[in-house]
Amino acid sequence: MGRWEYFLKRVLLMVPIVFLGTTVTFLILRVGPIDPAAAIIGPSGDTEAYAAIRDSLGLDQPLWIQYAEFMRDLLTLQLGESWVVVRGQSVWELVGVYGPRTLWLGFWSILIPIFVGLPLGFYAGLNPNTLADYIASFGGIVWRAMPNFWLAVIFVSVLTQSDALFGFSWGDWLVETQIVTPPDLSGLWEPTQFLGALKAILPAALVLGSASMGNEMRIGRTAVLETKNANYVEMAKAKGVPGRLVVWKHMFRNALIPLVPVITGEAFLLLGGSVLVETVFAINGLGYLFFQATINGDVPLVGSLMFLFILLSVGINILQDFLYTVIDPRVGYDGGA
């Protein structure tokens, strides 16, 4: 089986997964304790109005018909309207407003660890048991150990009082930004706007990416240490490959293999992990929207967002398989010679 055949097979496997995930979502929403009609009408509603709403929403129909409609709508990407949180607003519009903030946050919280954690880890692995290695490793453990919600609160309180604490105002530095507010994502192609949006998201992205940074540092270090002692590295040296080329060509690509699932695993931060951080920094993103929809029993909004989350996680999985396929030629190889 070729590498790309294997990749195609992995992609096809995702179809039943999307189907299964959506079905489970439906079951939890409809068979579970949430009563959407009661959620819409609120605690004061009378029985007649309640019955009318049930009727108009089609909640009296047999479950399998509801299921078929639910699946049909989602798979044709008709995500419907919110019933409770912003009544009557289409889900697509809501995603259009809340989504970019989460994507912006997620993007930086993945990128920062890759560009800080990985190089630090690789450096530590190339220079093991030196002072720099100890500092990096210790830092990695500290970053890894600080919980998101706690770190977020500390960041917010330090940054809002940075003027009093350090005589340096974070809010006024470079571009004027608020600390606890959704970032302004309009006009990102303009340097000042971009800088402002980046600066506004930076503390939250650092907090969200802190654990990943520690993870990637530590696993990057181990991966480099492992390939450093590999026989093919010694072979490369023995045939006269210069030291720098040995590191870049022969070590790093092999060291990346165990890091692929770590990095894509961090990408799931886009989903669940961001709710807490979004709440603390008041970045009204998808996590916040999902949380609101859930506690308010906004069934179509929850269902549609879940569907998008499922698509996203499946997409990340496909990306992971793609990276594997590109980096490691042994992927999809099932023995024999």
Partner: peptide, 29 residues
């Protein structure tokens, strides 16, 4: 020095290692 060594490794003195299963880099042809 290391760089002088690099100049004789391979074209001066080459080496064939014990375990051919692990002396070739798995990710390159």
């Amino acid at each position: 020095t290391e760089s002088e060594y690099e100049s004789i490794r391979g074209d001066g003195i080459a080496m064939v290692f014990q375990d051919p299963l692990s002396t070739l880099n798995p990710v390159y042809t």
